[in-house]
Design a binder for these strands. Structure first.
Length: 125
RNA sequence: UAAGUAAAUCGCCUUAUCGCAGAGAUUCGUUUCUGAGGAAAGUCCGAACACCAUAGUGCAAUCAUAGUGGCUAACAGCCAUCCAUCGAGAGGUGAGGAAAAGUGCAACAGAAAGUAUGUACAGGUCAUGCUGUAGUGAAACCAGGUAAACUCUAUGUGGUGCAAUGUCAUGUAUACUAGUGUUUGAGCGUACACGCGCGAUGCUAGAGGGUAGACAGCUAAAGUUUGCUGGUAACAGUAAACGUAGAUAAAUGAUAAGGGUUAAAACGUUACGUUUUAAUACAGGAUUCGGCUUAUAGAUUUACUUACUCA
């Protein structure tokens, strides 16, 4: 698994997202929170992942874009380290629930915690 | 030189590694090119474009605009100019149509503030505020002031917005139509045949509907830059060059190193170096244009004003 994060690994279908939020489970590492759901995809991707930042907490588009970019970057660089021994497919959504701005270092750190917690929970089953 | 006024421009850069979106090429391994703004923002005006509504007319009501002339596809925008007003000035501001249609309002002072006419003095008359002066006030009969009061006048105005709208359409429900079938069994499952199992307002086709999704709309445009001509100017004409993001849970990012720029401090020396520290703004396209409004670290240029010094 590489560091890339192409279009087909992004969560875009509105149907899947609704399904995810109604039935998914979650883990969190403040200020991050991940909602996940086991599922199967028509194409051969193993994960479909989206990121989200609340408009309520960040009113300006620049701030939201900035955090979403950082979240994508953190996910992209760290996913291979934790997902290698997961075999089934998952839909994921990573939310930023904090209210203050942030930088890459803290996002990177929290992302590692979050992915580790997720990997642990999934492999227990 | 200092303080100021008015315009205009720029608004971080380079390299490496890992990535993102679109288009092209491809031996399907890859690879090449392109990829946010002056406000992309607020959604406040004006248009293009699309659909809906609509017999015609009209502009009552509502809302908007308001010196004069010009520019523009259009505008509530822009340019010029007059007037008023603020400033020592360069310049700034404009809620600058009408008070002889009507209604309302007017502190203090004053007899009286709008159906006027008191007092004193003088003049005049048959007689009378009939006439003048004094006194209060910004204003005292002048067709007074006020329309940042109602109002009147002139001009304009159908509505909704690209989540518009059009095309394709998996699945699913079914009032419809046609065919076929109900124990002599259609159809479905078991790869196929046999066999076995399931099996009835069912199955197949059409029509209809238009959800998930896909495509079009979707970027060549009242286009940008430069020169020339006309015009005080806004702007117009003309020639050449350029061909400039198209995502949709929504691309242009992350890390590291170096360099700019600005400020402060220290050191050297003299108005430039070196070092350290800090700062490096506002802000992200979503159908497209023309404006307006608001946000913006810092830097640059031009024109002009005032003061001082020198010649």
């Amino acid at each position: 698994m590489s560091f890339s994060y192409p279009k087909k690994e992004k969560l875009k279908s509105q149907k899947l997202i609704e399904h995810l939020f109604s039935e998914g489970k979650s883990v969190s590492a403040y200020p991050l929170r991940m909602v996940y759901l086991k599922s199967n995809f028509d194409d051969d991707t193993q994960f479909k992942t989206g990121v989200s930042v609340s408009k309520r907490n960040f009113k300006k588009a620049v701030d939201r874009n900035r955090i979403k970019r950082l979240l994508r970057e953190g996910y992209r660089l760290n996913k291979s380290a934790y997902f290698n021994n997961i075999s089934s497919s998952y839909t994921l959504m990573i939310l930023y629930i904090g209210k203050d701005g942030t930088d890459f270092d803290s996002i990177d750190k929290k992302m590692k915690q979050l992915l580790e917690a997720f990997a642990k929970k999934v492999s227990l089953k």
